[in-house]
């Protein structure tokens, strides 16, 4: 006997409070989008005059001359600072990456659990030390030491192209700036790497040990391949932070407006430190040039960070599978 089942349509009407809630929360969440968009928009808008006046020369030019006397040429090109940003950050990542990965492995696989908890907090705190303190420490403590190291490197390994200099001036070099940046970004790289390493499935590590593998064999063949993309992503995040660092570079590096690829030789700088240096006594037109430089810096760090985020997320997703 068939009973005609009346299909009752279930309708949930959203109460008005929920509509309000959705509206408020959505607009609050999208405020970040508006902020990010207006950062790009306003910097581009204020600096647009420079981009249209200098054209591509703003990126490739290597002079920064404001109009002094009447009729003097005004030229703004950020190539030396763009190159300097890259050189400083690459030195920083090259130094910080192996040390950070080692430290992350130590914290995760070698340190006893009590020490591990302490070290994780130490890492969080180290990441929050203000850059002005890193800068002062770099200037007063690290710089004198690093000048000595640079001298020895040049003296004993000067035949190696990386350590060659034209003249023996070692103060305020990209090397010293890169070392300070390395100290600054290593907590980030270490934290991210440790996080990814800690997600290695323990049964894989235990399995490797059960097959008679030593601790290093398990790390080398399981933990490192598993965490590789996370480590790369962490390094990219560190690179992003290093690219945008202002005060520490301002304090430690002699900011010289010339492309310097000899890492032990005096003089370098990055876009952010140049902005801080020139900002105080800039003419209105020069301020526009500084805002345009800020736009370039924003775009560069945005790209680096998006790549980093994509890599880290990829590895975390792989881990949670």
């Amino acid at each position: 006997m068939a009973v005609a089942v009346e299909q009752r349509e279930v309708v949930t009407k959203k109460p008005r409070v929920d509509k309000v809630l959705h509206g408020v929360v959505t607009s609050g969440a999208l405020a970040s989008l508006v902020i990010l968009g207006s950062i790009a928009g306003f910097l581009l808008y204020r600096g647009f005059e420079i981009f249209s006046d200098m054209g591509f020369g703003f990126i490739t030019g290597s002079t920064w001359e404001g109009a002094g006397a009447e009729g003097e040429v005004t030229k703004y090109g950020i190539a030396p600072m763009l190159v300097g940003s890259l050189v400083l950050s690459l030195i920083a990542v090259a130094v910080a990456l192996p040390l950070s990965v080692g430290t992350a492995l130590f914290v995760e696989f070698y340190a006893p659990p009590g020490l591990r908890r302490v070290l994780v907090s130490v890492l969080d705190l180290a990441a929050a030390i203000p850059s002005v303190i890193y800068g002062l420490w770099g200037l007063f403590v690290l710089r004198p030491l690093a000048i000595g190291w640079a001298k020895s490197l040049n003296e004993y390994l000067g035949w190696f192209p990386l350590f060659r200099v034209d003249a023996t001036f070692f103060d305020g070099s990209p090397f010293i700036g890169g070392l300070v940046l390395a100290v600054m970004i290593s907590p980030i790289i270490t934290s991210v790497s440790r996080e990814v390493f800690s997600q290695t499935p323990p049964e894989l590590v235990d399995g490797a040990r059960a097959l008679g593998g030593e601790r290093w064999s398990a790390i080398r063949h399981i933990v490192l391949p598993f965490g590789r993309s996370g480590v790369i992503g962490g390094a990219m995040l560190g690179l992003g932070r290093a690219l945008g660092e202002t005060v520490a570079i301002y304090l430690v590096v002699s900011i010289v407006f010339k492309i310097n690829l000899q890492m032990l030789f005096t003089g370098s700088g990055n876009i952010a430190s140049m902005i801080a240096l020139k900002f105080g006594e800039a003419s209105p037109y020069e301020v526009k040039a500084l805002l345009a430089s800020g736009f370039v810096l924003f775009i560069v760090t945005l790209i680096v960070n998006l790549i980093a985020t994509a890599i880290v997320n990829g590895s975390v997703r792989k881990a949670s599978k």
Partner: peptide, 13 residues
């Protein structure tokens, strides 16, 4: 993306 904005860029903005 926002967490990567260099602090000086926030100031310039």
């Amino acid at each position: 993306a926002m967490s990567g904005v260099p602090s000086i860029v926030a100031g310039l903005f």
